[in-house]
Design a protein around this nucleic acid. Sequence first.
DNA 1: GCCGATGCGGAGCGGATGCTCCGGTTCGCC
DNA 2: GGCGAACCGGAGCATCCGCTCCGCATCGGC
Lengths: 230, 230
Amino acid sequence: MLGRMTVTGPQSTPRRRAPRADAVLNRESIIEAASQVLAEQGTAVDVREIARRSGVGMGTLYRHFPKKEDLVRTVLHNDFSKWAESARRAASDAEDPWAALADFYQQALTGYARHCAIMENFALTWSEPDLEGIRQLRLVIEELRAHASALLRPGVTTDDLLLLLVSLGHAVQFTDACRPQMWQRLLRISLDGLRTDHREPLPAATSPDAGIQPSDSHTLAARSRPSQSG
Amino acid sequence: MLGRMTVTGPQSTPRRRAPRADAVLNRESIIEAASQVLAEQGTAVDVREIARRSGVGMGTLYRHFPKKEDLVRTVLHNDFSKWAESARRAASDAEDPWAALADFYQQALTGYARHCAIMENFALTWSEPDLEGIRQLRLVIEELRAHASALLRPGVTTDDLLLLLVSLGHAVQFTDACRPQMWQRLLRISLDGLRTDHREPLPAATSPDAGIQPSDSHTLAARSRPSQSG
DNA sequence: GCCGATGCGGAGCGGATGCTCCGGTTCGCC
DNA sequence: GGCGAACCGGAGCATCCGCTCCGCATCGGC
């Protein structure tokens, strides 16, 4: 069966010829503009704004991304990845595993506190753990946890650390603009709660990293706005 | 000047006679229905749905609450108060001040994790600290903090505890439906971080309870949807 | 019971927004 | 350079949603 499949060029359908050069450029500029706009205004932004900012027409935008959600997903994939990477770099400069963990949170929260779309879509962490950007984030945290495990109180899981990041992310949203020191205090409190010291271990998580039920119907675009099919 | 103002009945304008009985009933049923609907669907809900659920027409609804935000504000005022009260009651049954604090968080997070509108509008905690419901919540926390102060690490403020509540509130939103034990773990970690034990005190908050700048333009209704004036 | 002030209902307005349609343009293989 | 497929742009469609308007019903002081 498999042997009968014709081996066809780089991927899947062979008859489709390479995209035109201008189309490639347009796609890139759409993604770049969308990243900016989504960071500034969140996923509820008008698609026209993205088209305008990237200098293409609506037709072009919708040719590349048939649904708004397709575009948002692509951008979030990229930006979650960039986020994970920049936070990982900050952690790699630290002098000990615990400082690495602390620096990771510090960088993760400062660097992306203003990225509305990411802050809005933390739910993806649980509803779509397989999105590439999310997976990278998890991997970074898992690595940091392993290195710092001697200092972490027993029973702390990667999911605990991830949920802490999500949770603090919202604290940052509320306080960063007016009183940034507030979320820093909360970060410090939480990190202290994670240290081993002489506390008893946490109870084992009942399903440590099992598959997670996606919540009801969380879509990427337009929180609480029903998607409408034409 | 003041002396010339006529003293007029119970309040302000005297010529307005008491509202009709049916109007009072309608107002109550609107608030009740709105509370349900807002809890279920958040502030982005269609006003028509509230009118339908409460059995009144649009005209009636807008007579009582000229703007959607007026209604939402009234409901949130009530519901924040109810929330504070129910959490305070849970705390009052505890056997020691620390357990009271823990029970408070437990009840606050369990009882209102499903109240979409409250979870959405934690920002009010910072942007409108004078809203009555918010003030009650702060008062309860302040009281618990005072009672547990011997066990709290030095430097922990009421705002710290409030921000922790806000922050955990979002963790609850993400995990309560599928893995409720996850946020419970995070609560435990955070509470442990608040205990005095042998850690150094937190640095003093730079402006402990000073006036807070309201963030850019947060309105109660329809997150990220620009209000439109007719 | 009369009657006017008060209250009611819901069709409809205007604007925002996701998405489509199609005539005109441009690229790139030959 | 020629030509057809791929691509582009933006006007326009359908829908949603906050809010208004106005003819009609109801309450309640007399």
